[in-house]
Amino acid sequence: MSQISLVIYQGLVLGAIYALMALAFTLVYGALRFLNLSLGALFTLGAYVAFVISGQLGLPAIAGIVGAFVLVGLAGVGVYQIAVRPLVGRPGWEIASIISTLGVGIVIQQLIQLVWGPRNQAMPEIVSGNLRVGDVLVIQYQRVAVVLVSLVVMTALWFFLTRSRHGLAIRAVAQNRDAAYLNGASVNRIFMLVMALGSGLAAVAGVLLSTVLISLNPTVGLSYALRGLVVTIFGGLGSITGTLAAAFIIGLFEAFVSVYLGEGWKLPALFLFLIVVLVIRPGGLAGVSAEERT
């Protein structure tokens, strides 16, 4: 029984972080129809920005999170201008943009390594203290704060997408680019906005994860970008509700595997799970139709 509560606790924390990461992929894919593989490196960059703001400058954790969101969001616009915009609309640009954003991601990751060095750095805590429940489960306030921040960000995103003019424009572009353009949405500006939002979300996910791990290093983004992709695909590329459900299912699944089978089996089990899902239900949870699976 106590093992189960451990699984649920860990799974919720992981799910809250994966949800942000996967929303980053899904927002960009939904609007631009391509996989932005620089998000893994931007995720790491976000963690380092917060490390500088809260760890080295000693500002409050909330400043680190906001700073990471804003600065990495701007970096995302830079990635769009440099590596994506020249390619949009070329024949075969989906694979070309995968390769170019992957390349930009490598460059960002290597720059992080040059600036901060390859070793682990200690990440400051957001909140200290913990609560003991039963004999196995120890709830750290730190992790509760992580889940709360994630929920706040997701709620803000939901309000932005459904209640603001820009959010409406993003959804319009995602549904039908040409019709949105004909109705006066500036597609290029929407793309920049989406890249900024997606990169910002990835950055916040990076900050939250490194506070949970209490450390950060330049390569942390890669395996979490892969997990974010797994969640995105499992949820159904481009579907936001599917992505949220998938994030928590995957989080719980991963916690279950690591509690019962051991840490090392997390990634292989996750990928086997994904393969089985895609064979049975290729559209993911949200059931994207066959024509859209391009």
Binding site: G264, L267, P268, F271, L272, L278
Partner: peptide, 19 residues
């Protein structure tokens, strides 16, 4: 499957083998 799905599934196999 197509496109992004193939990319991710095959990368998943790569990671499974490595692990």
């Amino acid at each position: 499957l197509k496109g992004a799905y193939v990319f991710l599934l095959t990368l998943a196999f790569h990671e499974i083998f490595r692990n």
